[in-house]
């Protein structure tokens, strides 16, 4: 098991290297001059030259890439052109918001999705089964940027139950420990802040969870149905176990194996979806930050942010692989 984990971690290195090549050249090879993009078409030649020199754009590409890579190895992503702040600092400030939103969305997606999938499979062809499967197809087809707006209209504008956007009301203050507001307010026993943070996260988290939830429900159902046909389920029934034990102990642990892989893959959708969700709900995370960098043509920040999100994504995929091996004893031997 340990050697498997080490091998998986080592396999990450060429991937991250590949990502860096792709990100760098995608941004530097596309037609157009980054300096001109930054300053606009009417910038003076002198100003353009200065910017090019400042960014090292006058050097040959491979020299530029070498510099980018050596900085990257030291964990330095350069400075954002808009603010002249270190990109790592800017990302570090916003990362917890995205993490908190993603975790909350994943909790929604996994609990509701798996529950719907299991209940559908154990009641195959029932009304519940049909309606939850139709709903899940609607879910995978959902434009979440629209769903977010509709939820806002219903729950904020008309009913006034939930705050329209943002992460916290302006008068609330939370002592930062982890940067995750819900966790921090729990740790500091700041109950009003906890309530405020939870109220703010419900809509964006639910919006972000829609597609993963639907996918998880579908895969859980089909995986459970497949497992329920197996011989060992008949054995479990022949032991005199109750349906609850047969379904939730004997079947679920087997059905979980493909489900976990799919859950892992959902993080990619989540990271992508976070860009849309954060935009709609003005959630101050990486997605919103990256999009603003795109709007501002801050190619340094886009490069750094993309690098980081892609690396996070492949790292999560690696962790899922390891978890998969851990839960499936048949893999351990090989």
């Amino acid at each position: 098991m340990l050697s498997f984990i080490i091998r998986r971690i080592l396999a990450l290195i060429p991937t991250v290297f590949g990502i860096s090549v792709l990100v760098f050249f995608m941004i530097h090879l596309v037609p157009g001059d980054p300096a001109e993009m930054m300053l606009g078409e009417r910038a003076s030649e002198q100003a353009l030259k200065e910017v090019r020199e400042q960014l090292g754009l006058d050097k040959p590409l491979h020299v530029q890439y070498g510099r980018f890579l050596s900085r990257l190895a030291q964990g330095d992503l350069g400075r954002a052109l808009r603010t002249n702040e270190k990109i790592t600092t800017e990302i570090a400030e916003r990362f917890p918001a995205t993490v908190e939103l993603s975790i909350a969305a994943m909790i929604f997606a996994v609990t509701l999705g798996m529950l719907a999938g299991i209940m559908s499979a154990t009641r195959q062809y029932s009304v519940f089964d049909y309606s939850s499967m139709v709903l899940s197809l609607v879910g995978v087809s959902m434009p979440i940027f629209w769903l977010g707006l509709v939820l806002m209209i219903i729950f904020s504008v008309h009913l006034g139950w939930l705050p329209l956007s943002g992460r916290l009301s302006y008068h609330i203050h939370i002592e930062p420990i982890t940067g995750l507001y819900i966790l921090d307010s729990l740790l500091t026993r700041n109950w009003p802040a906890l309530k405020d943070a939870v109220w703010h996260i419900i809509m964006p988290a639910f919006t972000l969870s829609t597609i993963p939830m639907a996918i998880i429900a579908r895969i859980t159902r089909s995986s459970m149905l497949e497992v329920l046909r197996q011989d060992y389920i008949r054995t479990a029934k022949a032991k005199g176990l109750s349906p609850r034990v047969v379904h939730y102990k004997h079947a679920l642990k087997n059905a979980l194996i493909p489900v976990i892989t799919v859950i892992g893959l959902q993080f990619g959708i989540l990271l992508g979806g976070a860009i849309l969700t954060e935009t709609i709900f003005a959630w101050p995370g990486i997605g919103l930050w990256l999009l603003n960098a795109v709007y501002a043509r801050d190619f340094n920040a886009v490069q750094g942010g993309t690098m980081l999100i892609a690396t996070t994504f492949v790292t999560i995929n690696m962790l899922v692989d390891i978890l998969y091996a851990w839960i499936n004893p048949r893999i351990k031997v090989s």
């Binding site: 590949g18 995608m26 992508g272 886009v302």
Partner: peptide, 23 residues
């Protein structure tokens, strides 16, 4: 390997980056 690399990005992110630099 190149295809794997493209898959290392959430697709909407990759699309955003491409559009951002194509205009």
């Amino acid at each position: 390997r190149f295809m794997d690399l493209l898959l290392a990005f959430p697709s909407i992110l990759l699309a955003i980056v491409i559009v951002a630099f194509l205009g």
